[in-house]
Nucleic acid binder design. Structure first.
Lengths: 190, 190, 190, 190
DNA sequence: TATGAATGAGTCTTCATTCAT
DNA sequence: AATGAATGAAGACTCATTCAT
């Protein structure tokens, strides 16, 4: 197996094990076993468990941004682009519950505290969403609120509902997703 | 020191240490030290670390519910009650950031999984908010969405922003709080 | 309650708790609770748990010797006295299973190693049995074996069977007891 | 060192430490030190202290059975086989006093309670002795007593004397062993 | 004198990390 | 480069003993 592939394999195994058992329920030995490598091998790619976790976070972030921004109808009206992002956000989280669970855990852990939160999940001003919102705000379509508040008004509810869905408390079907995104739009539009 | 006081002292220390370092970064010895008691003393009040954490959660929940529902203008219009709850919710979280961080951690941990999530933080349909929303919905003031979605539309953004504030990314002042609550109201009203 | 009575109460409680749970399954707190005294009170009578156990052993030994020697038909033939002792030995053990279990535990523990074993259970040359056997040996009724061997030939089987009985593997009824003692007699008589 | 050897080394160290200090006087750290391995290493071979002890018991039992049954003159008269077993039983115990002390402790502990007692030491009806005695009883050479009683009449005294010897109270030399076995034979023969 | 809350050393066990092979 | 056995520091928990009341 190639070096790069092995690295990927380890990251993926870490994701699987950690998202199920949590950071502290996932010993390196378990991750190694899942990746079908020896424990020592992991340390050839990542100097410590903490680094592995941070690297995994970064990898997921990239993967995530890519998925959500995919097919963004760049030249369509703001509202349409907004709905696109909302839909893809939910779609991705539901399709990749492991990613979602890991990212949530990461946010709410001392690991995540090291990171500026304005990256992913609940905030996106580093990326494409920022552009959409900024543009809309200039057109005075949106309320004149700080970017962080706008992001919160959008991703806060979505994350909350995805969590509810993952935990089985509600069932997020197509129409409900649309209605929810619409409600978020109501929250931010002027 | 009285027995009750010591119990309180231990709970408070656990809150302080855990909210900063996380569950797994907070050994019993550290909690004991913070409370200025010996480790064994903790076990006179709580049979295990897990129990200590659950008891702490329950205590915070009560404290929290009380604070948020305090002075609720029961006989005023729905919109006014809604704003009251939103304001007090934020106010409490900002005044008690340790509580907030602990509760957030608890929710996203295997501990919290034992609890139905319909309690606090991100959901409130167990209590007074549920009544307010239900009443408003009957009057057709609100969108005909499931209660869980309504709660998500309210608490999702608030929690998100409180976290941002606690972590120092934004500054939630009085006017911003009002505007945010208003935006949430826009999200749910029909 | 009198001082002496309290001491007795503690010893009796220690016996009950230890014989059921073993030395290491019987914390001082449990013994205190059983005796309905405070933990500290035990330390007014016994300087340490180890001492308590040794004192208990000594008390049981006395109680035991008294019970077994009771009503010994001093002026009857040796064989008759032998049977008397055998019967009373078994009778006492079956009637006082707690004593029996404690003494067995004590023997097989580092505690007991401190004691010369030629006291009780499986040896009795300190007391009346010694006299009976010595007398019999002088009359050449018994094999010319060392006293320790004679004692082993008598108490070895009895203890073994009592243990089997206590554990429920056999049922020691009257006739079986008689036959067993007779067999022991066959073992030692010349 | 080989894996198997290390396992053996740990078992042997456990035997040495436990037979001297007792189960509760033998911390894993002490066993590890004796075996010249780190504490964690023990857990690679045995999932818990309890398992270690049970494995040790099983290993000793096998060793023991093998030693005692070795060279059993299968086609010789019953009496001869009986003496052989008695001799080898004593011989093994005296040659392996650690084994003996451990097995005795095990029997009288909560650990041993899990095991049916019809195994070793004080009972042997699971194995070869049972066959010898059963055969002898059919030939009406022995008293018509239950097997458990016969075993008690044999092993009771032997164990008792071995213990005395190990503790230094008597000296079991060759002739004394022979006489003692003969006395046991007198106890059981009809 | 009696109490029992408090202490903290000691135990078992886990797991991130290392290193000889 | 890869392995995984070995390490030992760290953590939860127990309980004999002490001491302020």
């Amino acid at each position: 197996m190639h070096t790069v592939e092995k690295r990927e394999e380890i990251l993926q195994s870490a994701l699987e094990v950690i998202s199920v058992h949590g950071f502290h329920g996932a010993p390196m030995s378990m991750i190694a076993e899942q990746a079908q490598v020896a424990m020592g091998t992991i340390y050839r790619f990542f100097p410590s468990k903490e680094c592995l976790i941070h690297e995994l976070y970064k990898a997921l972030e990239i993967r995530f941004q890519k998925a959500v921004s995919e097919g963004l109808p760049v030249h369509r009206p703001v509202r349409e682009r907004f709905f696109h992002i909302g839909r893809f956000f939910i779609r991705y989280c539901l399709a990749s519950p492991l990613d979602f669970r890991f990212l949530e855990q990461f946010q709410n852990s001392p690991f995540g505290a090291a990171y500026r939160r304005d990256r992913i999940l609940g905030n996106g001003d580093a990326g494409f969403l920022h552009d959409v919102l900024a543009e809309a705000q200039q057109e005075q379509i949106l309320k004149p609120l700080p970017m962080a508040v706008l992001c919160a008004l959008i991703f806060g509810p979505l994350i909350c509902l995805i969590r509810d869905h993952v935990l089985g408390f509600i069932r997020l079907d197509e129409p409900l997703v649309e209605e929810t995104i619409a409600a978020c739009w109501d929250a931010i539009r002027s």
